[in-house]
Design a protein around this nucleic acid. Structure first.
Length: 258
DNA sequence: ATGGCCAGCATCGCTGGA
């Protein structure tokens, strides 16, 4: 059986739950990683998702951030990790194991602006993530890292690279951090399938960004080299971004063959 | 025409997102 896995920053699960349920029912992924659920676990819609066949592991927080992994299979909760480093009080990472494959769902900080202290937090978080993934890869040769990376890895991932030079999401330190993660032994799965074409996963709510296709590819599914031979299809599903009251991000999908 | 948004908070204006 092929294995279908997806990531989606939903920008409030409370608002987007109807979109998420409709998308799951139509696309039937084995796994969906959510970011920015913006709720505590006590408010998570476990039952509504169980009703359509999905189990959930939730790392929640009031108002901000929050990530979750939805799976068709039940999850062994003994090896769940729900933080990147102990002092981090922002809920941005949850990792599970499924079919001998490690699945790491990340909501990497936005960074605000290169001159902002939030940018330093982003770089620190990326350095911590690098160390974490090096250790994970030792333990789990089959690892998938997916989520909202808040990094456009190359100019082909940016609608107007000249307007974005040096800015957050594209700056050299961020792109270096992304490439350093790949150097551990990972590939950007979308680029294995679609090497050059400009395809985006996020469009600004402002300035009619979606209609004018002024977007960025900042949501990624990164797979360890051991999984590369199974990389079959990857695509970005723009349909949810065209709905009423959409998230500003849209799902990214990967299909692994047997 | 070329751009003016969205979610949460115990709301009526701010923070944060990207």
């Amino acid at each position: 059986m092929p294995f279908k896995i997806a990531t989606w920053n939903v920008n409030s699960l409370r608002v987007r739950l109807p979109h998420v349920i409709a998308w799951l029912e139509k696309e039937q992924p084995d796994v969906l990683a959510l970011q920015e659920i913006k709720m505590e676990a006590v408010h998570f819609p476990y039952q509504e998702l169980l009703d359509i066949g999905y189990h959930s592991v939730v790392c929640g927080q009031k108002t901000y951030n929050g990530v979750a992994i939805l799976t068709k299979q039940t999850i062994d909760t003994t090896d769940v990790i729900d933080y990147l480093y102990p002092e981090d009080n922002q809920r941005r990472l949850v990792a599970i194991t499924l079919n001998n494959t490690r699945i790491v769902n990340v909501y990497i900080p936005n960074g605000a602006h290169p001159s902002d202290e939030k940018y330093q937090y982003k770089l620190k978080w990326l350095a911590q993530l690098h160390a974490f993934l090096r250790a994970q890869l030792q333990q789990y040769p089959q690892t998938i890292v997916l989520g909202d990376f808040n990094i456009a890895p190359t100019d082909n991932d940016v609608y107007d690279p000249s307007a974005w030079v040096g800015q957050v999401l594209v700056s050299e330190p961020e792109r270096s951090a992304f490439n350093d993660i790949l150097q551990l032994g990972f590939k950007d799965s979308f680029r294995l399938v679609v090497p050059e074409e400009k395809v985006y996963s996020w469009w600004d709510y402002r300035a009619a960004g979606f209609r004018r296709n002024l977007g960025m590819r900042i949501d990624h599914i990164v797979i360890s080299d051991a999984l590369v031979p199974r990389c079959d299809t990857s695509y970005i599903d723009k349909a949810p971004r065209a709905l009423e009251k959409p998230s500003d991000h849209t799902p990214v999908v990967l299909v692994l063959s047997d």
